[in-house]
Every structure is written in structure tokens, then in C-alpha cells.
């Protein structure tokens, strides 16, 4: 049984669904960020899988690289915000934080 494109895509779509589930159900803001990271990884798998199976491996890798860079920037900023929110509200539960100021 050969591994085809579909195998990778199915695994990535499941990973995506887990990420989405995490984002939707968890109250903790850090957990929401983790869900986002899962989704980004799923997307990266898709990039690489498509580029591998169309014999243009380099371009997909560059795209994946950009995604990783953006993810790093995003998580840095997001965690800084989370820290700030915690300082302000002593709480990082997204369902309770519904004000833009104290």
C-alpha cells in the first residue's frame, strides 16, 4: 500500500479539526494559541505535500518557511498581549474578558 497525497491531506485535515476544536472549546487564552499553532502546522503539511507531489518542492518549502516565520512573530505578540491581559484582569479566560479597558 503506497502512501499517496490523500494520506497526508487527511492527516492534516484531522489536525486542522483538532486545532479548531481547541480554539473553540478552551477558555484559556494560551490554549487558544496552541490551537492556532496546530492549524498552522496543518496548513504547512498541506503546502509541503502539494509541492512534493507536484515535483516543485522548493516553492512549497519557501511558503512553509514564511508560515513558520509568521507563526513565530504571531505567537510572540500574542503572548505579550496575554501577559498584559493577565496583568490587567488577573485572568486570561477569553469568555470573561469582554472589555477593551479596565
Amino acid at each position: 500500500m503506497n502512501i499517496t497525497l490523500n494520506h497526508f491531506l487527511i492527516v492534516s485535515s484531522l489536525l486542522f479539526s483538532f486545532g479548531l476544536y481547541g480554539i473553540v472549546t478552551r477558555k484559556n487564552a494560551v490554549m487558544v494559541l496552541m490551537g492556532i499553532e496546530l492549524i498552522l502546522n496543518a496548513a504547512n503539511i498541506n503546502f509541503l505535500a502539494f509541492s512534493r507531489y507536484s515535483n516543485s518542492i522548493d516553492f512549497g518549502q519557501v511558503a512553509a518557511l514564511f508560515v513558520i516565520i509568521l507563526a513565530a512573530a504571531e505567537s510572540a505578540i500574542a503572548l505579550a498581549i496575554v501577559l498584559n491581559i493577565y496583568k490587567t484582569f488577573v485572568n486570561i479566560n477569553v469568555d470573561e474578558i469582554d472589555k477593551l479597558r479596565e
Binding site: L20, I23, V24, T25, V32, D95, D98
Partner: peptide
């Protein structure tokens, strides 16, 4: 609800 998560569910 004002919660982003609910909206994401609806989007899905």
C-alpha cells in the same frame, strides 16, 4: 454571544 469562539463555530 460576543464570544469569538461561538462565531468560529458558526463559520464552520
Amino acid at each position: 454571544t460576543g464570544k469569538v469562539q461561538t462565531y468560529i463555530v458558526m463559520v464552520a
